[in-house]
Amino acid sequence: MYKNRRGRELESLKLSVSWKPPTILKIRQTTTNNSYVFSWPRCQQNMSAANITDFSLLPVRMQDFLYYRHCRHFPMLLDVPDKCGGADRSAEVFLLLVIKSSPVNYDRREVLRKTWAKERLHNGIWIRRLFISGTMDSGYEKKRLNKLLELEQREYNDILQWDFSDSFYNLTLKQILFLEWMERNCPKAHFLLNGDDDVLANTDNMVEYLQGLVDNDGSKHLFTGQLIYNMEPIRSPGSKYFVPVQVHESDLYAPYCSGGGFLLSGYTALVIYKMSLSITILPIDDVYMGMCLAKAGLAPALHMGVKTFGLNDPFSKVDRYDPCYYKDVLLFLPAHMYLMCHRIHDPSLKCGLKNEGSNSTKL
């Protein structure tokens, strides 16, 4: 158990009348599959953010974040509105794999499609896959990367892409945009795996774990992974995870699960989206999810099978490339994903007493 010591959240920025949020939603009909894509006008820079105390002392990347922090709607470039069979039939999806990926990570997506993220029927239930992405670079290079995603989309039909900068500080925006898409297109999916494209997830173990839950078919709260609590914001400007008091005033984050990968129910996903509508965006996405949970009166939970920080075994003689060391884990950061994924699912794999000292957890 943890003690909830959340401080005051920073009040929403008091924005001047120098800007107005977009209020007109444009809907265009695609020519390929007769579906509809929601398109929002470009969000304008909020110049009044420069009036924040010591704004000029903040790193440029943080200044840019504050200038556009209010922006939550961007044109959708690639969509798969029928991924879940439509809103009414989305209850047929038991586990939806939602994988954060940048346009340049083509190799990672290809490996995942061939391994743990393969769409399939397992134990009588459907596993579906989506990659969520923004855009990178500008000019010709941006067009080239977008073309790459378009080609992947034609072959696999598994990418959601919006026209915003795919940067670390925009990971929270990526999560919000997906949850908005889910509410519209896949509201009845039972469970979701939300994770990065550089982890290895044992989705077979996940299905068995989720099917074994008592009295929870996805219609009740579930949010589990590598639990982090009593974490303070990093105030050092040189850190990747720097969050100044101008962005988050409290000296403590609400409990959250590492964004590398976590499981949640469809119910909890929609609750988080509802809460996000009234919580100012924070640049650290997993922390922000924890804030949304806290506002809803819900809590994340630890799952010993999720190892987003890697596996640390006190026995130095353990072979870190032994598939038995990983076989019963739910999710972890692998050294060689393609090889390891095949090895842990090899039907001839025999794991004996030599592996009892590992810290893996059977699901």
Rank of each mutant, 00 (worst) to 15 (best):
C292N: 06
E208A: 07
E183F: 01
I228T: 09
A87M: 10
R343Y: 10
N34K: 13
G86I: 04
S165K: 05
V111T: 14
L298M: 10
L160E: 01
S276C: 08
A201Q: 04
D88G: 00
P59A: 11
S39N: 15
H73T: 12
A189Q: 03
E9D: 09
H190F: 02
L78A: 00
R343Q: 15
C341K: 03
Y169Q: 12
K295D: 08
L177F: 02
E152A: 02
C186P: 10
S12V: 05
V214L: 07
Q45M: 15
W162P: 00
A49K: 08
S12W: 03
N46A: 15
E119S: 10
Q161K: 00
M62T: 15
L210H: 05
A91L: 08
K114T: 04
G85S: 05
M1R: 14
L213R: 12
V80T: 03
R69T: 05
T203L: 04
R343H: 11
N51G: 12
M76N: 07
M291H: 06
A296W: 00
K354V: 12
G238R: 13
I127R: 03
A87Q: 07
M47F: 13
S16K: 10
L179Q: 05
L264N: 05
H303S: 09
S138A: 13
S39L: 13
E150R: 06
S101P: 03
F178A: 06
P323R: 03
I281M: 14
Q45C: 15
F94C: 07
Y209M: 11
R6L: 14
E356H: 14
E155Q: 09
G297V: 03
R5G: 03
E208G: 07
K327P: 02
L10N: 10
Y273I: 01
D328V: 00
L66F: 06
I125Y: 07
S276N: 05
S16T: 14
G310I: 09
V60H: 12
Q44F: 09
I284F: 02
P81F: 00
L213W: 07
S265Y: 06
V80D: 02
A269H: 06
L311P: 00
M47E: 15
K327E: 11
Y209W: 09
G305H: 05
G86Y: 00
A117W: 01
R235V: 08
T361Y: 15
A254L: 03
I99A: 06
S35E: 12
N194C: 05
F168I: 06
W162Q: 00
F94E: 08
S360N: 15
S101C: 11
A335L: 11
F168W: 13
F178V: 00
I281L: 14
K26L: 15
K20I: 08
L252N: 07
L112T: 04
T31I: 12
N170H: 10
P81T: 03
Q175K: 08
R113H: 02
C257Y: 02
G134T: 01
S250C: 04
K26Q: 14
M340A: 09
T172F: 04
R343S: 11
I159E: 01
L179V: 03
V271D: 06
E232I: 12
F242K: 02
D313K: 01
F65N: 06
L333W: 11
